[in-house]
Design a protein around this nucleic acid. Structure first.
Lengths: 212, 212
DNA sequence: GAATTAATTGAACGTTCGTTTTATTATTGT
DNA sequence: ACAATAATAAAACGAACGTTCAATTAATTC
């Protein structure tokens, strides 16, 4: 038995990607065996090596494409407006939507970094840093414009990203809250966290708060 | 060669614990081999089994003791005051201090849950839930007393914990910021996030904010 | 100082791992 | 129809894994 009827390289590769993301997210990269992945795909382990050179190569591909997807999503969602509040809102909305939509891929990208070779780790971290830099720029602009009240831009950016990405830990689609409700609440929390005037509190209070 | 001069069970066990936490935090539970751990300890792999029944048993012990440590630390730090602001401040301070102090153990407890058997996973999650429940109670009390302004108690608790625990991802001792500075900033962000009156603003403002 | 117990070694067990090689069959192009 | 190529199976590789067992030596007890 060799080539099976109806077999198609593109389909198989897509199936491998999907199955790999799910298995790695569930069991972890080290715990997932290539044979387990092959079984899930419905193929022999040797067939996987026609599409990915090594197990680590597969992991890297999954991560790189996830990061590219995140960057692309932000490029598309980035508002033309220069208003820091609007830009921050767009960032939060895009981040949460993307991470909920691709929970498993996000889990992989966040949890399995240590299984990458140093060079590949650097490459992924560079992409991540570039993405986070966008948030820091928004916070800095807002702080300079006096729209935000922020102690430490870098620290606030990290706190916000941890908070937002944390959604994937507990969020399950179809449970108590919808994506829309979750996003709205996180948006509100974010705006308060950065001391934005137009959060839940009346605008004129923030001025008083800052001057006092 | 058998028993070595100066060998001591208690010392060896402590060394194993310490080395295991560090190795698992660095490479991951699945990636760390018992032989690697033994080498780090300076002993043969077989010797490990005198102290821990299996590799998973070792992992579970590390996690359980970490969670017990966290709970105990909170018991000791919990203020007698009923004031939600004070209680929340104590929770944040204790959480951040504990997690920075035991970065590696926290990493293990957060990242390696999937390597536990179902029963043991349940046990650890129960401890974690109990700890998080304390935060929810503080938030609820504060919201009911009108001291906090919170949309969704459960969601806010999760956001806060993700934010606070995230410190261990980027914090490195001896870098730009000290633990004290980091804690102060996080405390300030927390108070704003929950809409506490006495965050960065003077205390007497809280009354105004609540009535408005 | 002999007997007992504690601590560890060294070798081995069976299993599973990622990966490679070779053969075989399905599909595609002519 | 026939060659060329794409896709897979089947089997095998050596290495590493968690774990066990018997032997051996250090420390302790009486």
């Amino acid at each position: 038995m060799a080539r099976t009827t109806g077999s198609d390289g593109e389909k198989t590769e897509a199936t491998i990607r999907e199955a790999a993301v799910n298995l790695i997210a569930r069991f972890g990269y080290e715990a997932m065996s290539m044979r387990q992945l092959a079984t899930e795909v419905g193929v022999q382990a040797a067939a996987l090596y026609r599409y990915f050179p090594t197990k680590e190569g597969l992991l890297f591909t999954l991560m790189r494409e996830h990061m590219e997807g995140l960057t692309d999503a932000w490029e598309a969602a980035r508002p033309t407006s220069a208003d820091p509040v609007r830009r921050l809102a767009a960032y939060v909305e895009n981040h949460i939507a993307f991470h909920i939509e691709r929970r498993h891929a996000t889990h992989v990208s966040n949890m399995e970094l240590r299984s990458l070779s140093p060079e590949r780790l650097t490459q992924i971290l560079r992409m991540r840093t570039a993405y986070e830099k966008e948030l820091r720029a928004i916070l800095r602009d807002g702080a300079e414009a006096g729209v935000f009240d922020i102690d430490d831009t870098g620290l606030t950016a990290m706190a916000l990203i941890q908070m937002m990405t944390g959604v994937i830990v507990w969020f399950r689609p179809g449970e108590r809250l919808s994506i829309t409700e979750v996003t709205a609440t996180y948006l509100s929390m974010t705006m308060r966290l950065v001391g934005a005037a137009s959060s839940t509190a009346p605008r004129f209070l923030s001025g008083a708060q800052r001057t006092l």
